[in-house]
Design a binder for these strands. Structure first.
Lengths: 365, 365
DNA sequence: GAGGGTTGTGTTAGCGGTAACATGCTCCGG
DNA sequence: CCGGAGCATGTTACCGCTAACACAACCCTC
């Protein structure tokens, strides 16, 4: 007996050929039905019915191979566990899914070198675009990307020498803006917490903004210390405040590299019965939910995290489409806005929600 | 004149064939060099040198097509912007990257039906495994997965009728545990905040645990209200507390479906000069950083978020490898542990860090 | 030194789609 | 009633890689 033509009928997934046979058309027609090419409505209906009946699912890798379009966009963020980046990824995903593009997500965990590995790994999937966080990359990454010719969008910063497109804002300006706010409300001995590691170039940039503002405002020597490795978070804020105070007991203002850090610092103040903002006014960055919901609210710099993602996605859509048609696109620089949100951690006493820790005013309720 | 054999030398990415030619071997030998098959050391060295020189990057889609192994694992979580899930994804990623598997991440944003869409979309990439959050899925999803034969791991819960493997814990037990803790410290009028939407089955399960515990403890009628749509967060906690108090002004305990909710509730208490924990003891869930860093600390149920991911990854590694060898694997149920972390929001007065809001004890420091 | 295993490499035939061109058909104006 | 345009569909030739088998050279062992 000869073996049957189908050795093991292990009912593996149906292919486009199966659908074609069932609908009595050629493979190509099925392909056209799926991708919206011109096709007779009734043929299309018949094909779609068969697809449904057979539970056919197109094989993305095969399509990618044949069409030379992976349908992927690679995104690299320092951490997923950060409301800001999560928002950006969400905005990006929404924009890209609408264009039929899938996200390939990678996190560096703030480790230098990890980005390089990730880029290399992801290149194997031939992404049609890459979204990076920040403007600081190893030269190997820049090389690889340049060689590949893949459109690149850098986000969350305004790099001096961009690789490709940019959607972001000046972290330096953010650090300066908060420092100036504290000065404007009369603070003179302002410290900075965070941004002490090259692993987090954006945090460092905010610190530079603070340093520059100090000079500009004539506020004397900087008060910063090296403490902690990214991701800096609440407990770093608490411990960092303790160290800062130990070193400069007289500070009356504190700029933090992020809201979680600021929250930690404020909590530590509460524990130590230090009045915020009376004794120390504290500002953060990012407008995290905690900045709005904690008590007192945290004065912060709000940035459009979701929009950064959405716009990066929009740029990529345009560029990828142009590239598919063989056209080139000029590099875009899209500066997103940021705004100072003044809350209780720098300006106390706001009607109905004032809060003086450790003191008074047992307002009845 | 005849056209040259290479029409447009647009230096497109080199292929394995280019490497093979350059190293004077066959394509197959290059493939072997890359995947660790037996090969003469010097041949391998020569090939790797050429790969480096030519900047060759393997084409994942082509490999996947030929080998019938995508190298992908699909992960679906409700939201990426949640420290718990982010931790799980991180644990999973670490485990899988080590096995050469790439993550395909999708978020449902707590929308029913989104999971179904995502599964369908992701199936096009023929993932070798799927990690789901929770044990509640539409029948279409279950169908699709069953038909595909892809190994499935459900996480963050203990489904009554699992699809495949399980790594999780009982959210019901978690809700009960916190309720029992509040009862144990003398609370009798305990409310629950959260878990009011079928969009978040795990939150609902915690609420059920609360309800069961109430009955078991003889603590009278439940105090819960429908409020908010997932993801419930800090501001829902604040507003939810307000509503709960309006309805049941005499509560002395509050179980929240998550730490952020609890934090919002506590903040609202502070705003209203309600002493926590004296007047109302408040518990959360998840052991988020804010539970450790806020003031007072939040009593919570700690779960091993990262471990859930890590173990799900380990299971998949095993199962996928077995499957590649043609073996089958029995379904695993891996119950992860959880523990009650008692902090200031339910039990005040802990040496050195006590905090009675609005009252006394200006301990000098 | 013949038989049988190992080792290193090459050959062949796809994997499941799509680009590009080919084909038959209908419809139209002149 | 013919030429040519436009439409719906089919044919062919890959995309870049790997499974499976083929094969030659070498190593044993008896």
């Amino acid at each position: 007996m000869t073996k049957p033509p189908t050795p093991t009928p292990t009912r593996s997934a149906p292919t486009m050929n199966d659908v074609a046979r069932a609908a009595n058309v050629s493979k190509m027609t099925v392909s056209r039905a799926l991708r919206g090419d011109r096709i007779a409505p009734e043929t299309k209906a018949r094909i779609l019915a068969e697809i449904d009946r057979l539970h056919y699912v197109p094989h993305a890798a095969a399509g990618a191979l044949a069409s030379r379009r992976s349908g992927f966009v690679a995104v690299i963020v320092p951490s997923i566990d950060n409301a800001n980046f999560a928002e950006t990824v969400r905005g990006l995903e929404a924009e890209l899914r609408a264009a039929g593009l899938d996200l390939l997500l990678g996190t560096t965990e703030y480790r230098i070198g990890r980005e390089d590995e990730l880029v290399q790994t992801m290149m194997r999937h031939r992404p049609e675009g890459i979204v990076l966080t920040g403007g600081v990359h190893t030269s190997r990454v820049a090389d690889r990307l340049a060689r590949s010719g893949i459109p690149v969008v850098e986000t969350w910063d305004l790099p001096a020498t961009p690789i490709g497109h940019v959607v972001g804002f000046s972290n330096r300006a953010a650090g300066a803006m908060m420092t100036e706010h504290l000065a404007a409300i009369g603070r003179r001995r302002i410290a900075f917490l965070g941004g002490a590691s090259p692993r987090d170039p954006r945090g460092e940039a905010r610190k530079h903004g603070y340093l520059e503002a100090l000079v500009r405002l004539g506020l004397g020597p900087p008060r910063t210390l090296r403490y902690g490795l990214p991701p800096l978070s609440m407990h770093h804020g608490a411990a960092g405040l303790a160290r800062t105070i130990a070193r400069w007991p007289d500070i009356d203002g504190l700029v933090c590299a992020s809201d979680p850090i600021a929250f930690g610092a404020i909590s530590e103040c509460q524990r130590r019965r230090i009045a915020v903002p009376q004794t120390i006014a504290i500002g953060g960055f990012g407008d995290f939910e905690i900045a709005r919901c904690s008590h007192p609210g945290i004065t912060t710099i709000a940035v459009e995290a979701a929009q950064i993602g959405q716009r990066a996605g929009a740029i990529l859509r345009t560029v990828i489409e142009a590239l598919r048609r063989g056209e080139a696109c000029p590099a875009t620089i899209d500066e997103t806005s940021m705004s100072l949100e003044v809350r209780g951690s720098t300006v106390g006493e706001r009607e109905g929600k004032d809060f003086f820790f450790g003191k008074k005013k047992q307002k009845t309720f």
